[in-house]
Design a protein around this nucleic acid. Sequence first.
DNA 1: TGCCCTAGCGTAAGCGCTTACATCAGATTC
DNA 2: GAATCTGATGTAAGCGCTTACGCTAGGGCA
Lengths: 340, 340
Amino acid sequence: MDKGRSIPTLGDVAAAAGVSTATVSRCLNAPHRVVKSTRDRVMNSVRELGYTPNFGARAMAAKRTYTIGAIIPTMENAIFARGLQAFQEELHLRGYTLLVSSSAYRPDVEEEQIRALVARGADGLLLIGYDRDPAIHAYLELREVPALVAWAFSNDDKRPAIGFDNYASMYGLAQEVLRLGHRRIAVISGITKGNDRATQRLKGIQSAVRDSQIDPESLHIIESTYEIESGAAAFGQIMQSARRPTAVMCGNDVLAVGALQRARVMGLRVPEDVSITGFDDIELARIVTPALTTVHVPHREMGRKAAVELVNMVEKKSGGTSTQLQSSQRLRESLGPAPT
Amino acid sequence: MDKGRSIPTLGDVAAAAGVSTATVSRCLNAPHRVVKSTRDRVMNSVRELGYTPNFGARAMAAKRTYTIGAIIPTMENAIFARGLQAFQEELHLRGYTLLVSSSAYRPDVEEEQIRALVARGADGLLLIGYDRDPAIHAYLELREVPALVAWAFSNDDKRPAIGFDNYASMYGLAQEVLRLGHRRIAVISGITKGNDRATQRLKGIQSAVRDSQIDPESLHIIESTYEIESGAAAFGQIMQSARRPTAVMCGNDVLAVGALQRARVMGLRVPEDVSITGFDDIELARIVTPALTTVHVPHREMGRKAAVELVNMVEKKSGGTSTQLQSSQRLRESLGPAPT
DNA sequence: TGCCCTAGCGTAAGCGCTTACATCAGATTC
DNA sequence: GAATCTGATGTAAGCGCTTACGCTAGGGCA
């Protein structure tokens, strides 16, 4: 086709510089193996032609793309944003490009996205949480694509992970709630099916309650999607029940903010009439009034360390080790003593 | 290498099914061109071997990847999240995969990401705003990768775009502020350099002020990065000046929320002592107390329509048309009459 | 001076896929 | 029954790149 305006290839550069394609390739990938005079000539041609390598071809020939993929449940709220930003920054420092995909919390979409990313040559993958079809991990293993689980950590699972103990974190927060005298507690949980983080958090509350000699069956539990509106709706429903709780513990900050909003609409004072807690400590938690009591997660640290570990795995410097991060409580205004 | 556990290829499937690679390829890409009996046999082998196509190879041979790239300035706040989610959903419906990259508001990083995505075979690109090195658009044109500008719209620019008029939207909001009697106005703008949206919004305010016979020079303008903390800091600085404004107009909701926070810390009542406005109408705007007066942008609609248009461009059904969306004011509690 | 090394490049064989073109066995037509 | 057509499948030529291997020339060494 019209030579004039078609995309320049390695061959074009080679021809322009009067060398072989091998030399051009070496200039790009292992400059020290080419003598400076030729290298300069080649680089000039590269610039003049506006050449950029075709990754598809490169990946096929070299089996390396310097691309890392991440599949997160959602971009819509800030839960993953901060950690992901740190993840990307660290990857960038190490010469890797991050490609992100979101699954809308749907396992089938997640699987599709994983395949898409792998098929596009991702060298490694960041996945959120443990819960997914084992076939996927088998698939990744066959293809020798290392994957790192993030936002979760479990001693019982050998897959490499970086995160915190969702169970213990929520257990601790629930203890605090109980310490303040709350006995009638409701929970607005994320959808637990297929989401180990939501599951563990819920279990944490249940255990703490049980350990305080309260019948866990008395917990009013509602599962809800992670949206402010859903949180609000769940809160409304809970507060219509005959036996109103004095504290509502939410699976994350987004749900808690929804609850807070609805409380205001209903004319309920927080925490005088009802206490509300969250999880994640996203920016939102400090901004709302009253500020949210929640569990702080070191998102940026997690993102950064995930990048370091994943790159090591890709470069075979690590077989994949797991790292547990510490979460901590942030006791703010939305949690108070149980009304007498 | 050890045949047993290596990645299956088209050839492996062909061998297993006893057909040629061409037939397997056709089964995958144009099923109707293969008779059902063979097709079933092939698909069985595909399943048994756990075959997934290699996109690099496919892209190289077919020059199509069904992948769309988007480069957004940041994932950290929700400005782009909602629109992007809708964008992805619509793309998914049409059989395309979305890959996202973030530039941290840095032009050099953005350029790098654009090249990365193109090199990885993106069929089309979604870019935010007009402002960027013309060389980039030339590069995309040479490579025949269609690009759609989003979150901005200008009659003066012929590049295909979908968005709203940042200038007019902010002009309208400023008029409202002026109508309420505010004469001493401050602006916390985003960084205008390299950001046409921030620039247009600022100009909108300046024009409205001028049209009200106020010296635009009297505007106290601070440029700030789009972070809550920066917004808070800028607000603090503004409120220390000798001639305190009665209204502070912010370049977006994130900055406005920062301002709101600092106002509370400083013991200033909003809007009694000072009015504050935002832009974008992200979720946050409704959640803070007092709720934020802002400009509503139809994010989801924009995302969806962007997907439709971009796919059409990729499939050559459209040369790239521009669409202007309407923004609208959301007058909430944070804006009140100027104190007398 | 003759030999071996080595640095610097070129040659060419793939990587896994798509697709134009060739082939071939019916089915259709007169 | 021969000629023609048609639909299903195979053959093989790339797509743009990397890299094992081979070649050459100059330098070092005995």
